[in-house]
Design a protein around this nucleic acid. Structure first.
Length: 368
DNA sequence: GTGCTCGTTATACACTCATA
DNA sequence: TATGAGTGTATAACGAGCAC
């Protein structure tokens, strides 16, 4: 990547990360997603959620997201498992994420919510912000960020005294801790010379290496703030765990430009369809062989599932989808999109023409 | 189209704690 | 004791989706 690209606000995100990002962030409404369970193996104890592979789509691989539960004795584990197995999560979740309030144990409630809402659009936006910061700073995978700077860029309003409200700061801390603690377990195909092999990978999207609190008198505990209370540190140093090839001219990555990091104030993070569609298209760039590097053809069924457009009103779903397409067209990520008839009458395909100036894939193994 | 629910932010206020 | 920074809680308001 050249220096002029950084000046133009263009940055790269690793291909291996984009290949799994929509799967890793599948919501509980996604038909491939299973309810969280407690599980133990030789490596330890975990709260985990499995996303099953969809046999109809090669890009929809089997993936597990899990939070390791450290420092548990055998007895504590048995007690926790007994309590958790007794919960009727399905019934709780019929009332939405708020239904989890019926879980009495605060830590377990928060960990379950963390797993269920993992990689919501706000967290995806945070990941993109960190990659953009890494590109701007040129310090490789390690990025140092100030909490208030991120919140400023995300468009949150300051309070009268010029700081950000504790709730917003706390939410940022919880998002960073979710990305720090949640492990992704999946199979990744790698090239050894000309030979393609598959390895099982266990990776976090990022790890928080250090955090700093400006006022040393403040009693701040990172784990406690994530599990029981509120609060945030004033700055964090994070390591982007997938950051390996993205600055390599021969690497495997997607270039993004022109991304608006502003949160729509008052807008629910879960309904940011524009960001969801953009990330999904970037993900497909890493799986498909786009015609001329910019034409992608994807089934409507698959798009609706990955955009979480799973409501019962199909005409409304369609309306939201095309409104989202228009949004990406206005933001110059898309040049065009149109409906194509599928093999069966019921299977509609959508052809996208991406704008290579704002989203473009590089892969040393697939000629572009 | 209407009314409801849900997730989110904004605002206000009370509390704790350290410091001057 | 007053002050300021940070934290925790309650409530109102808003936008969006959903069911009817």
């Amino acid at each position: 990547m050249s220096g002029s690209d950084v000046q133009l606000n263009i940055f790269s995100v690793d291909g291996p990360l984009l290949r799994i990002l929509p799967r890793a962030g599948a919501s509980i409404r996604n038909p491939d997603a299973n309810l969280p369970v407690l599980r133990s193996d030789a490596g330890g104890y975990y709260l985990e959620m499995r996303i099953d592979a969809d046999p109809d789509e090669v890009s929809e691989v089997d993936l597990v997201r899990r939070i390791p539960l450290d420092n548990l004795s055998g007895e504590e584990w048995k007690e926790l498992k007994r309590n958790y197995d007794g919960l009727d999560l399905e019934s709780y979740l019929s009332k939405g994420i708020k239904g989890l309030e019926q879980i009495e144990d605060i830590r377990l409630r928060r960990l379950t919510a963390t797993l269920l809402t993992f990689l919501n659009p706000r967290q995806v936006q945070l990941v993109l912000f960190l990659y953009r910061a890494a590109a701007a700073e040129g310090t490789g995978p390690v990025v140092k960020i100030r909490s208030n700077d991120i919140l400023e860029v995300m468009g949150y309003e300051r309070t009268k005294d010029g700081s950000f409200h504790a709730l917003i700061r706390s939410q940022l801390h919880c998002d960073l801790m979710a990305l720090h603690r949640t492990e992704l377990v999946y199979a990744q195909e790698t090239w050894t010379g000309e030979k393609l092999e598959a390895d099982v990978k266990i990776r976090n999207i990022l790890r928080v290496q250090e955090y700093h609190v400006d006022n040393v008198q403040r009693d701040f505990d990172s784990e406690r703030a994530a599990d029981y209370t509120y609060g945030a540190a004033d700055s964090y140093t994070v390591n982007l765990e997938f950051f390996q090839t993205s600055t390599d001219a021969d690497g495997d990555y997607v270039l993004f430009g022109n991304i608006d990091m502003q949160q729509g104030v008052g807008k629910s993070a879960k309904h940011d369809y524009g960001l969801k569609l953009l990330v999904y298209l970037a993900h497909r760039l890493k799986w498909d062989a786009p015609k001329d590097g910019q034409y992608l053809t994807i089934s409507r069924r698959c798009l609706f599932k990955n955009l979480d457009l799973l409501g019962s009103n199909s005409s409304r779903n369609n309306k939201i989808f095309w409104r989202t397409v228009d949004e990406l067209r206005e933001k110059k990520f898309l040049l065009n999109a149109r409906e194509l008839p599928g093999k069966r009458k019921s299977s509609v395909l959508i052809e996208f023409q991406l704008n290579p100036e704002n989203v473009k894939s590089y892969d040393r193994h697939v000629p572009t």
